[in-house]
Design a binder for these strands. Structure first.
Lengths: 109, 109
DNA sequence: TACGCTGTTAGACAGCAACCGAACACAAGG
DNA sequence: CCTTGTGTTCGGTTGCTGTCTAACAGCGTA
């Protein structure tokens, strides 16, 4: 059976259906986070590791943003070796907040 | 011709089409402001003065929130005597940010 | 075991936005 | 003119969040 790595064990994901609207909006109201989401939206799932995003902040700050997106139910993360791959939870999030994601990222800032 | 009152002359409205997404999201990300918008959404236009909203903040703060909504292109205001009446700019805002308003206020927090 | 790479955590700091009381501005009506 | 009602502006406080550096933790590999 697949053995869960030590890092993966501390990775907690929020269920989009349980996320308060306030949390979702706060997550979407930051330009760096929207940039991450747009990036994920145009690439295949599980192809982008955290470090591969071109962001205007240091990696500690980026790590913080990924954590916010995770606890808002917007992304899912999975470890592959030392890298942490990302996936946009489009269907799940859409089902909890119909139209919100599209209205937010299908558009320039 | 209709003479504009002294107060009305200082009332500036933002064109929703010119509003940056960041400004729109910041405006929608506050619970007090969403409460105002939901209230406007279920009442006839120009029927609600600022003071008629049941808000958990003092009037100075409420005044601030109305100003934010105005500069985000979400509401229009018009003076009627000493009172300032409000209208939700649903069509204009929807045209600039399709689906965003509905996704935000057609739902409990 | 040692190294390099990726990402997280801890601690500190700065800026901003929500909030309030007080003072002010304007309108309506006695 | 004075009073009352409505809303705005000003100054100040406070709490939160985005940011950074530094240190740390896992993972893969030589």
């Amino acid at each position: 059976m697949p053995v869960e790595s030590a890092r993966a064990r501390t990775l907690t994901h929020a269920d989009p259906a349980e996320v308060p609207l306030q949390v979702a909006l706060d997550a979407l109201a930051d330009p760096v986070r929207r940039s991450i989401l747009r990036d994920l939206a145009v690439h295949d799932e599980w192809t982008r590791a955290c470090g591969t995003f071109d962001l205007p902040v240091k990696k500690a700050t980026a790590s913080h943003h990924f954590a916010v997106l995770r606890s808002a139910g917007l992304i899912e993360q999975r470890d592959e070796g030392a890298r942490r791959l990302n996936r946009l939870r489009r269907a799940e999030f859409d089902s909890a907040f119909p139209g919100l994601l599209a209205a937010t990222i299908d558009r320039a800032d």
